[in-house]
Design a protein around this nucleic acid. Structure first.
Lengths: 232, 232
DNA sequence: ACACCCAAGTGTCCGGCAGACACTGATGTG
DNA sequence: CACATCAGTGTCTGCCGGACACTTGGGTGT
C-alpha cells in the first residue's frame, strides 16, 4: 500500500492519518498523564496546568483523563509524588545531624529547583504520598540521637523545609521590597524619607546573589538548632 | 410630591424604591469595595473573592466595580494595603533588637491571624503598597546598630517574616505529615515499618499546640541571629 | 429653557476553567 | 454470535475575569 497509491494521494494521506492515530499513539496511563502535567508545569507554571491543556499534550479529550484520575487534585497529587522522586538515604552522609540535614536541604532545594511549581503545589490540606512522607522521614531520622524531643525534631524539620519553600521561588515566597525588582526599588528610593532604614540597607544589596538569603537563613537556623542541641 | 400620591400607591412605591436606590445606598468607592472584599475573604477565604461576589455584597453589578479598579489584581492590592494596617512604631519598645523584633513578629502574626487570607495573597510578583513596605521598614530599622550589613539585615527580616508565613495558615504552610490530621497520622502508623523515625517522633506530639512550631522556630532563628550579632 | 456632556452603573458577550453524564466503538470471553 | 467491559468522546452546566457598547440622570454653558 505504500507506492501503489502514488496517484491517489488523498487516500494514502487519510490512511496515514488513521494509522498515526490508532497505531503509533501509546495507551493513556496515569504515569503518562502525570508526565504530561509535569512537563507543562515545568515549562509554564502550575497556573497553566488544566485538564484540557494536559489532555491537549496527549492529543486526547480532557474527559478521557477522567477515566484515569478522579479529579484534578488527584492528578496534581500524582504529579507531586512523581516529581519529588525517591527520598534520599542520609545514613551514608558522614558526620552528625548538621551535615546530614545540610545535604538533605541541598537535595530538596535541587528538586524544587528542577520543578519550580512544587512549592506552590505542596501547600494546603491535601493527601501526601509515600515518597513525599519519606523525605520528611529522612530528615527526622537525621535528628535522632540529638536529645531533641519528638516534637522538637518535627518542628526543626518543619523550620528547615519552610525555609526552603520561602527561598525557593518568587511564586511562593512572600514578596519582598528588595530583590532584583528595579521598579520597586526605585519606588523606595523615591520615597526615601519614608523608609530610611530600607534605603540604608538596600545600598549594599545590589550585588546580592539570589542564593545569599538561602544560605544566610539556613546558617542561622542550624546555628540556633545547634545551640539547643549542645545545650549551650 | 410626597403626600399627594397617597392613593396611587404604585407610584409612591416606585418612587420609594427609586429613592431607596438612589438615596440610602452610599456611593460606590474604592474603600467600600475593598472593605467588601476583605469581609468576604475573612469569612470564606480568598478563593471566594470574585468580582461578582464582591459586587453582590454591594448590591451592584460586577462591571460597576471596574469603574473604580482596573482589574482584580488591583482590588486585591488595595485589600492587602488596607488589611495590613499601619506599620508599628517599634522605637517605643524597650530593649535591643530582639525584644523589638519579637514584638514586630507578634504584631504581624496577629494581623495575619485576623486576616487569614493575607499570607496567600501576599505572594508572587506584585505591587506593594506604602504601608506594606512600612512593615518591612520597621523590622529593618530594629536591626540598625547590630553591626549586620544591609544585606544581612534584609535577609534576617526575610527569614523572620518567612517563618510567620509558614506557621500562619494551613493554606500557605507546606503540608506536614503530622499536625492534628488524624487520617494522615494513622496512615503513617499503618506503614510504620517505612517511617520508623516519624512514628517515634509523632508519639509525643499528640498534645502539641498549634503555636509550638511558631515559638520553636522563632526562638531558633533569634538564637542564630544573636550568635551572629554578638560575634561570639 | 434647552442642548449637551459625562460619569456611574449596566447588559451582553467571550474564552477558559472543572466536572457531570450519557454516548460510542473496540476488544476479549462465554 | 452475544454480551459485558472499558477507553475515549461530546455536550452541558455553572463558575471565573474581563472587553465593550450601552443607558441614565444630574449638572453646566449658552
Amino acid at each position: 500500500m505504500t507506492e501503489s497509491a502514488r496517484f491517489h494521494g488523498t487516500e494514502l494521506l487519510w490512511k496515514l492519518s488513521d494509522q498515526g492515530r490508532s497505531v503509533t499513539r501509546p495507551a493513556l496511563t496515569v504515569p503518562r498523564i502525570a508526565a504530561a502535567g509535569i512537563t507543562l508545569a515545568d515549562a509554564a507554571g502550575m497556573a497553566s496546568v488544566s485538564m484540557q491543556q494536559v489532555a491537549g499534550m496527549l492529543d486526547v479529550t480532557k474527559m478521557a483523563l477522567y477515566r484515569h484520575v478522579t479529579n484534578k487534585a488527584e492528578l496534581v497529587a500524582v504529579m507531586i509524588e512523581i516529581a519529588v522522586g525517591e527520598p534520599p538515604d542520609l545514613s551514608t552522609v558522614p558526620g552528625g545531624w548538621r551535615p546530614k540535614l545540610t545535604e538533605w536541604a541541598r537535595l530538596m532545594r535541587e528538586t524544587w529547583q528542577r520543578h519550580p511549581w512544587l512549592p506552590a503545589a505542596t501547600v494546603g490540606e491535601r493527601a501526601m504520598g509515600p515518597r513525599e512522607i519519606g523525605w520528611t522521614e529522612s530528615a527526622v531520622a537525621a535528628l535522632e540521637g540529638t536529645g531533641l524531643t519528638g516534637a522538637q525534631r518535627m518542628d526543626a524539620v518543619f523550620l528547615v523545609s519552610g525555609h526552603i519553600r520561602n527561598t525557593r521561588s518568587a511564586s511562593t515566597a512572600g514578596t519582598q521590597p528588595w530583590s532584583p525588582d528595579k521598579r520597586l526599588r526605585s519606588q523606595i528610593a523615591a520615597h526615601g524619607d519614608l523608609f530610611p532604614a530600607l534605603v540604608a540597607a538596600t545600598e549594599d544589596t545590589i550585588d546580592a546573589t539570589p542564593d545569599s538569603s538561602w544560605e544566610f537563613g539556613l546558617a542561622r537556623i542550624f546555628d540556633g538548632l545547634e545551640l539547643l542541641i549542645t545545650g549551650r
